[in-house]
Simulated scan of single mutants.
Amino acid sequence: MTVFRWLALGAWIIASPVLAQDNSRTPSHCIALAGDIDGAQFVHQARFDLNVAPDTVRIHYVAHASFLLSTAGGLNMVTDYTGFLGGAEMIPDVVTMNHAHGTHWTANPNPEIPHVLPGWGPFGVGIDHRLDLGEVLVRNVSTDIRSQWSGTEENGNSVFVFEVAGLCIGHLGHLHHEPNAEQYAAIGRLDVVMAAVDGGTTVDLPTMTRILNRLKSSIVIPMHWFGEYTLDQFLVGMRDNFQIVEVGGPALDVSLDRLPSRPTIMVLRPSWRIDTDD
């Protein structure tokens, strides 16, 4: 499938009616003044022999920039979807994609996936998504990327935000610049953010550090790192303002009442999705 057909698909997604809403989503505070959450407790590592608990989101780091987000209601969403999750026979309900490189999208997603959300539209125009599935609201904020001709493709990347279980979970995508004031406002408060920390292919580390200090998310999950050296370089620069936790696995269960009281970097170790029982 060509990029031009994908652009047409993106326009179709925008124009298509949204599914009937069942008003079951726990209200979030994404677009609001952020304050401390009384009674917050520490997040815990996910257990895959259990279903996702109520008001909880399971975040599984699959590979590179791809995460699987699973909800208590049984919805499964994949970020920067490449068409492959591992050995699991799963058809996600929602996939998001960015097209900076082939490791962030696929031209041939499974046609049985109900909602395919490309993070770009016609060149320089961008795209707008606001997909309300009742339990989850998925929206995006467009940012610029460097084009393949060393220029700039305005609005060619998307920061995707998932509002679910009272949480605001953001995926910064293949970010190539610090958001401006309008983009920061549109992104809003993020409880959890997945951030590319490669230090060059996306933004440099000082810029990403500045972004994360401004977002003040309770949980930062590093992604898009190429080996331990790259990851360690990021962690060293963040130690003054963030607690660092090596989770020891690929997944976390996160809920509003278990967010850490101090901004925390949760280091997940990517793993293909091979189990199908949870």
Results as ranks from 00 to 15, higher is better:
38 D>W: 04
10 G>L: 01
187 I>A: 09
106 T>L: 06
225 W>G: 01
85 L>H: 05
234 F>R: 00
117 L>Y: 06
237 G>D: 10
154 E>A: 15
6 W>P: 01
187 I>Q: 05
82 T>K: 00
212 L>Q: 02
210 R>D: 15
138 V>E: 06
61 Y>Q: 03
259 L>V: 01
192 V>H: 05
194 M>W: 01
151 G>Q: 08
33 L>G: 10
171 H>K: 03
245 V>Q: 03
169 I>T: 10
49 D>I: 06
203 V>L: 08
153 E>R: 05
33 L>Q: 15
173 G>N: 04
212 L>S: 02
54 P>L: 03
173 G>Q: 00
142 S>V: 08
17 P>A: 04
49 D>H: 10
79 T>K: 04
254 V>F: 04
55 D>F: 07
119 G>L: 03
90 M>N: 05
153 E>C: 06
149 W>H: 12
61 Y>K: 14
72 A>D: 12
67 F>C: 02
89 E>M: 10
241 N>S: 15
177 H>K: 14
142 S>I: 06
55 D>I: 01
263 P>H: 00
173 G>W: 00
192 V>T: 04
150 S>A: 11
107 A>W: 11
103 T>E: 01
140 N>T: 02
123 F>A: 12
125 V>K: 12
214 R>E: 12
206 P>C: 11
262 R>H: 13
177 H>P: 05
64 H>T: 07
270 P>V: 00
175 L>V: 07
238 M>C: 10
260 P>Q: 00
56 T>Y: 04
176 H>C: 13
54 P>F: 04
45 Q>D: 13
20 A>H: 08
216 K>W: 04
41 Q>L: 15
158 S>K: 06
174 H>D: 11
4 F>S: 13
123 F>P: 09
50 L>H: 14
221 I>N: 03
158 S>T: 03
168 C>P: 01
186 A>G: 02
206 P>F: 08
180 N>Q: 08
131 L>Q: 10
263 P>E: 03
93 D>H: 05
159 V>M: 02
170 G>D: 09
31 I>G: 08
98 N>P: 00
261 S>F: 07
58 R>F: 10
14 I>V: 15
232 D>E: 11
255 S>F: 09
56 T>K: 05
61 Y>S: 04
146 R>F: 11
58 R>P: 13
242 F>W: 11
145 I>F: 00
21 Q>Y: 07
16 S>Y: 00
73 G>F: 01
210 R>S: 15
65 A>S: 13
249 G>W: 03
245 V>W: 12
222 P>W: 07
215 L>Q: 15
45 Q>V: 10
100 A>R: 09
14 I>T: 14
158 S>V: 00
180 N>I: 07
198 D>E: 10
229 Y>V: 13
57 V>P: 03
13 I>T: 05
163 E>C: 08
171 H>M: 09
184 Y>N: 06
219 I>W: 00
33 L>S: 12
206 P>W: 10
239 R>S: 11
